[in-house]
């Protein structure tokens, strides 16, 4: 029957397309070394926020933790008050969404967004080939949770950069 042949042909083409895509495999991206980034010295009750301004230019903030600072959102709020960090964020069903942060002003027309990486193990993304940076012995990995759910703890590093999709 002609229609059956057409249906089989469409299905075969779809499967061949996927197979071809799978055959066209690339190597898993390796974690990049950020040799130019120097992490700040942290005391036992401190964590750090790093903003990549572009190229090899970074801004580092040290956050002294208190009982009021438990999440990434609390950390940003602290920096707004203590370091006059400029932030534009909006509420969403998943918590705060950062539109701009300090010098980071993503161009949405170029599909840019602010990417957040963390050193806190339980917040790290687990998807295949998740983006990671090595800074000395510290591994920064794309966060699986939004800024409002990120963990603020002693020794933690939260890293912001512009990325595109």
């Amino acid at each position: 029957m002609k229609t059956k042949r057409i249906a089989s042909l469409i299905l075969t083409v779809a499967l061949i397309a996927v197979s071809t895509a799978l055959v066209a495999c690339v190597d898993k991206p390796a974690a990049k070394q950020l040799t130019e980034l120097i992490l700040p010295e942290l005391k036992t009750n401190q964590m750090a926020v790093i903003i990549k301004n572009g190229g090899n230019d970074y801004t580092s903030y040290t956050v002294t933790l208190s009982e009021d600072i438990k999440t990434g959102e609390d950390v940003i709020q602290y920096l707004i008050e203590e370091a006059s960090l400029s932030v534009d964020w909006t509420d969403s069903e998943h918590g705060k969404y950062i539109n701009s942060l300090g010098s980071l002003k993503p161009d949405v027309s170029k599909k840019e967004y602010i990417n957040v990486l963390t050193s806190v193990a339980k917040d790290k993304g687990v998807w295949a080939g998740v983006k990671s940076y090595m800074v000395g012995k510290v591994t920064l990995t794309e966060s699986q949770v939004g800024i409002s759910d990120m963990t603020a703890e002693a020794g933690a590093i939260i890293y912001f950069e512009i990325a595109s999709y």
Partner: peptide, 21 residues
């Protein structure tokens, strides 16, 4: 999502700590 990734240039397989991830 944990086994196969896509980097724009093509698909790749990530088997590291597969089941825990």
């Amino acid at each position: 999502d944990v086994f196969v990734g896509y980097s724009g240039g093509g698909f790749f397989v990530d088997t590291g700590e597969l089941f825990s991830r």
